[in-house]
Amino acid sequence: MSQNTMNLKVKVWRQKNANAQGAFVTYDVAGISDEMSFLEMMDILNERLITEGGDPVAFDHDCREGICGMCSMYINGKPHGPWQANTTCQLHMRAFKDGETIVIEPWRANSFPIVKDLTVDRSAFDRIIQAGGYISVNTGNAVDGNSLPIEKQNADEAFAAAMCIGCGACVAACKNSSAMLFLSAKVSHLALLPQGAPERKSRVLKMVAQMDKEGFGSCTNTGACEATCPKEISIANIARLNNEYLGASLTAQ
């Protein structure tokens, strides 16, 4: 593999803290190898800002292998940047051209307030899970794992939904800032498994109520969430959630 280097401009949203006024600042970054990851390019920018006595750009990141869901940049008009089924940390500089200006924004949604620069607060997702995104089984209560055969197709579909990494790209991509893809992934995961059956109805009602309380928008089925989801969670999960909701709300006492 031959390495090519490029010079780029990065236009980044800078905001000191939640209450401060933010603005875009453009930086030149030179000598970027196309084998670098996007975040390594940001590391180089930050290293330079530190040695120059400036304030490095704050951004969330952790595992850098596309699974923790921490990274969250809105790059050139798409959450996680131009590649499909990808997280920011797995985006590589091959995706960009020499001389290009890259615009980097934080996730934008009232429910994801900015902490600093590109870092946002996604604790709303935890509270949605707290509302019912679990199966109530205390440690020690379990029966043998094979005593409950599960149809492979359902198990596979449940897994496909459970792959959600909770990054919030769906909210960032949605024109309504809706969290329906996130919520539906969890509701589907648990609704598809027999273990989830006892709490099935109360779960969906409580989780939808919490999502509304957190101030996310409603779903208008545009499909932007599915198109940007790094784990390619299917929008069919939203339809399943609607189905669960309709059934549960009609039959609730």
């Binding site: 679990y134 199966i135 089984v137 440690t139 020690g140 209560n141 379990a142 029966v143 043998d144 794992g145 094979n146 409950l148 055969p149 599960i150 149809e151 492979k152 198990a155 596979d156 449940a158 897994f159 459970a162 995961h189 648990l190 498994l193 273990q195 989830g196």
Partner: peptide, 22 residues
């Protein structure tokens, strides 16, 4: 062995065979 049982009960979607078993 208890761990597998506990995780299955929590809804961890382990890979399964066509017969529905782990």
């Amino acid at each position: 062995t208890n761990i597998i049982d506990q995780c299955v009960a929590q809804g961890v979607p382990f890979a399964r065979e066509y017969g529905g078993l782990l």
